[in-house]
Design a protein around this nucleic acid. Sequence first.
DNA 1: CGTCCACGTCTAC
DNA 2: TAGACCTGGACGG
Length: 360
Amino acid sequence: MPEGPELALAGRYINEACGGLVFCGGAERSAVGRGPEVPFRSEAYRLGAAARGKELRLRLEPLGPGRPQALVFRFGMSGGFRLRPAAAPPRHAHLRFLTRESPPRALCFVDARRFGSWRLGDAWQPGRGPCVLTEYRAFRENVLKNLDDKAFDKPICEALLNQKYFNGIGNYLRAEILYRLKIPPFEKARTVLEALKHQEQARRKKNSSLTLSKKLKLKRDNPDLLELCHTVPMEVVAAEKNLLDPDHADNHTAFKNWLQCYGVPGMSSLRDHNGRTIWFQVTTRASKRRSRRAENPATLAVKKEEEEEEEAVPEPPRKGRARARRAAAAAPASSEPEAPVKVTRRRASARKGAGTAPAV
DNA sequence: CGTCCACGTCTAC
DNA sequence: TAGACCTGGACGG
C-alpha cells in the first residue's frame, strides 16, 4: 500500500467512511503494535484524518467534554486502515476505534509486517519535507533552494526516496516518475535538478509572448521532474475509485494496470546503493526518437515493440550492494571490476514475478 | 517443504 | 553501509 497516494487515500477513506459515525470508548491496542497506548477515552467522539507525505494524522474529537487527541501514523511497508465489524477484526489490527453502532464496527489500523507505527500528538515528524501531493509549491521550493545539500550528490533515483525533500515518494513512484521523462536513474541528482532551474528560466523567456492559456497548456504537456513528483502520485489518487473498500479486488487490478514501469515485463531493474530495486527503461537513441515522435503513446503498443538494440545502460552502482543477507550466491572472488549487478530485461513472455527473468 | 521478494525507515559497527 | 525489524505471497524442488 503505502506511498503518498495510499496515505492520501487512507485519509479520504477515513473521512468518508467514518465522518458520519460516532465512536466511543478508548483505542484498543494489540499486544504487539508498534506504538504507545493511547490515553484517550470518550463516550462519544468523531474521527478525522489528514495525510502529509507518508504520514497520516488522525484526530479524535470528543462531542462532549474532554480534550481532543491526535495521533500520527506511518504505514511502513504494509500498513493501512479498514472499517470492519468489530466482531470480526482483520488479522494484524494493531489499533482499533469502536463505533457506537448496534453491531459495532471498528476502524482498524492494520499492518501485517509491523514496520508501521504511531505516535501521540499532532506533530509531523520533524525533518520530513512538504508533501508532494498537498504542498506542491513548498515542496518544489524546498528542493530548488537546497540543491547544495549533499543529499543531491546521490543518484536521482536515490535522492527521490529522501523524505526530507520528497515526502511521499517511494519505490514505485520514483520508477514511474523517472520513466515518464526517461531520466537514467543513476544520473546525479544535482545535475538533473539544476537543469530544471535553467530550463525554467529559458522557458519563461521563450513563452513570455504567449497567452496565459497557451502557457498553461505548454506546462501541462511538458511537465518537469518536480511537477511529475506531484502529478504522477495525483494520478493514483484520482484513479482509485473504490475508496470505501481499500482491499476491494478492482483496486489492485487498476493499480497494476496504471503502472508503466515498476515491475512491468520488458522493463529493466537494478539494485541501488541501498539494496532497493530501481525499475527503469533502458533508453537507446532509437527509442528516444521513437518516444519523442509518439509523445502520447498508446502505452501498451509501445511497450510491446520494445526490443533488442544496443543499449545505453545507465551507470550502474559501483558495486552489487545488494540485499542484506545473501545466501552467498555470486562468487565474491574477483573484487571490483565486474559488478554483480544485473540488468534484467524481461520480455513480455517472461513470468510475472519480479526477479525471475534471465540477465542479458 | 524452502528461498526470494515486497509500496520503509532506523541504528549500530 | 550492513543489518534489523516482520509477515506473507510467489515460485521452485
